[in-house]
Design a protein around this nucleic acid. Structure first.
Length: 280
RNA sequence: AGUGCAUAUCCAU
């Protein structure tokens, strides 16, 4: 079985699901009993080539092979549904997941929440977070980052601030992505000043802002047309980071153009960027 | 023996 299973895995990586299918049948004809590993490998063959219906069918047939989906099975399917699937498909996986406790770890839930969020299904994203708590699975830094990012998308800075507060009190290792997402959330909601105050939290935690932080701050001030402040953060990034990121240059140009300040925008594009060796 | 998690700009959605 291990030989077949490994072959199926390798063929799947190669995109050759047809040969994998043939081997999958052959195992059964030999009378070998399939296990969850082998089924996951076969499911992976299908997701690899976007044959989601085949993947879902096999996943639903697992009990008839005497197997149960595990965290790996769910991880595969959640990831696929988030990338290419419909809301309904992801919701159905979530329902299955809830019906089988202990088949989900923090990573499974993180992926679930994030993929609901990508689909803008915020109700289910929050519900997944609630379920995670109810099952006593501790939030990781990634969980906090994902939740705050979700609130940035749904423009709910008040809920983000609550989650952020909980993160600061959690005793988890400081993680810059969590802070950056909080900057993003305030900025997206049109509150650049609280966004700036997060930089203080970053330093207090012993971290330094990175190119994501600076780009987000420039875009936050640019969004409300406050270009002097945007420019200040841009300059600070240039002096601390060495060279500005292309994304931050874009954010600054965009801000100037939204504010109808064409000349400064042109200066960034035609002078500053070439001088720093940055291609538009 | 295997799979799956998170951040920025613009555009598109």
């Amino acid at each position: 079985l291990i030989n077949y299973s490994t072959m199926i895995m390798i063929l799947g990586e190669d995109g050759n699901y047809l040969m994998a299918e043939a081997l999958f049948l052959e195992v059964q004809q030999l009378g070998l009993r399939l296990d969850t590993f082998a089924l996951n490998n076969m499911i992976r063959c299908y997701t690899r080539v976007n044959r989601i219906q085949d993947a879902l069918d096999l996943y639903r047939k697992m009990p008839y092979f005497g197997c149960q989906p595990d965290t790996c099975t769910f991880g595969l399917l959640i990831d696929w549904c988030g990338k290419f699937g419909s809301r309904n498909e992801l919701q159905r996986i979530f329902m299955d997941l809830r019906a089988t406790p202990h088949k989900a770890d923090a990573q499974t839930f993180n992926s679930m929440i994030n993929n609901f969020s990508k689909q803008r299904d915020f109700t289910n994203a929050r519900e997944a977070a609630r379920q995670m708590r109810a099952w006593g699975i501790p939030f990781s830094s990634a969980t906090y980052a994902i939740l705050i990012h979700m609130y940035a998308k749904s423009r709910d800075s008040a809920s983000a601030a609550e989650v952020y507060r909980e993160y600061l009190d959690s005793g988890l290792e400081p993680n810059l992505i969590v802070y950056n997402n909080m900057v993003l959330c305030y900025g997206s909601c049109g509150y650049p000043e609280p966004a700036e105050s997060v930089v203080g939290d970053i330093r207090r935690a012993g971290l330094e802002p990175d190119r994501f932080t600076y780009c987000t701050l420039v875009s936050s001030w640019g969004r409300i047309g406050a270009m002097p402040q945007a420019r200040r953060w841009f300059n600070e990034a240039c002096s601390t980071q060495g060279r500005p990121s292309i994304e931050m240059c874009n954010a600054l140009i965009d801000g100037y153009l939204k504010a109808k300040e064409v000349n400064p925008a042109n200066f960034i594009l035609a002078k500053l960027m070439p001088d720093k060796g940055i291609k538009p």
